[in-house]
Design a protein around this nucleic acid. Sequence first.
DNA 1: GCCGTTTTCGGCCCGACTGTTTTCAGTCG
Length: 569
Amino acid sequence: MLDPPAALAPARLSNAEIATQLLSLAQLLSTQGENPFKIRAYRRAAEAIKTLPESVDELVRSDADLTQISGIGKGISGALREIVQSGSLRHLETLRSTVSPELAALSEYPRLDPKRVLRIYKKLGISSVAELKAKLEEGAIAEQLGIRMDQHVRQALVESSEILLFDADEIVPGIQRFLVATCGAKRAAVAGDFRRRVDVVRELVFVVEADDFPAVVEKFTRFGGGTEELSADDQRAAFRLSSGLRVTLERGQAAKWGLTLLACTGALGHLEKLEENGHSLEKLAEAREKYATEEAVYRKLGLQYIEPELREGRDEVDRAARHALPSLVTVEAIRGELHAHSTSSDGAHSIEAMAEAARERGYEYLGITDHSQSLKIAGGVSEEDLWKQIRYIDKLNTRLRGIRVLKSAEVDILVDGSLDYPDELLEELDYTVCSIHSKFGLDRKKQTERILRAMDNPHFSFLGHATGRLLLKRNGYEIDLERLIERAKANGCYFEINSSPDRLDLSAEHARQVSEAGIAIAICTDAHSAAELDFIRCGVDQARRAGLAPAAILNCQPLMKVLRLLKRT
DNA sequence: GCCGTTTTCGGCCCGACTGTTTTCAGTCG
């Protein structure tokens, strides 16, 4: 069937273009004092559209039911139809014509928060986005309005190509399916940072096997209703998705599949280490032998197979040559959870429900670590209530089967380094997780001394999220990890890898340092609901990148051993 | 506006603390 003449058919819109209209509407509605939940609904819908493999434009034209997409109901579905059919949204155009010229101009940059921008305009005596950009470059925004404001403007003006590994996990299967089902690839394997399980992914790399690679590349430009092609030749092609993320397709052939996969998985440092050791991948590529799997490549090189998580160019090649690589921790090796919240503070489920969820996951024990009294916002537990909780858990344990609930708390490390409960109460707990939740602004020395002092309390068991970082959102506070490691070792304290997808704190690098000092690490989810116990896989990914074996992990040990290790007094 | 239901309306974190952007917005979980 022929397409109708161009003049009669509105231009096809990419999901990115459609999502931008929803975001602009949300932004302008926010200046009109609209219901914040309505605004959030538009934003959520825009996000959903951005990561959708199918073209919204095509879905509308084929009269598909858009409300099947999570976050899209009758209202927004109607808006999407209007955008596709007419090219614009009346509600948005009306708003643009009624608001001030400054705000109307801002709606072209829907990720900018108008309230904040107007404050900047006022402070710096400017009135346009062009001037805003100029001030940003000069550093005037950071200087006069603070780094947070600078960060906001920067992130809103510049499309970010970085996403959390956790979010990448959501979109990778859709891309893979699209490559095979729609683009006609025989096989598509994800490589790069994602495969090495790096916490923040900057680019997705797929190795693609296809009879007609250029055809795959051509069809991939239709992903998400339109994906920008940045470059393409007969071996590789680069794209930018609606979400801003870069995707690279690398051509792979069955006979050399393992070799291509290895080269595309990297990291560069790992490949360089292989070269330094006289293992030229290029030579292998030219050779006649088949290298259909990575195992075959490493075998040929006389190396033990190296897990992707270890391929960072540290000592993994040397160790592989000596066949001395660690057997990395797995989710199956985890025997219990040591950091989880309940409805006693800010968790979604009761202690008993959490215990049941832990038991379902095959755990032997679950530590309930609700927030301590100072952390009001998170419903911190009063002393009196913690005493009650201790007695409650003792009773609960007499009737629970197959799981032991441990009595604990996530105890705030106060600004002076003291702990947020009196010693006689801490004494009654099986162990403690001690964390910083306030005064992030202290300098490195003060922050370190604050934690050192906390570690000197004999009831301090392990340090929760050591730097307080939130990936892509907030840098952590500064700490002197070496001094902390030294004191932890002297005092019998431990560290956690917080598995929350945007924390992953300790980082892999920090976890490596801690472990190399001979200190065991707890991999904890910090679950605030039963479902969040599954974040454990994210923490395990980090631990694997740090080269940790089960023996180095506290909660890979049986109950009695964990209790013995954690209790210092 | 979406969602889910002990279905068609009520909930969707929120609330104390902080501090220099200065008296309200940003911050913490």
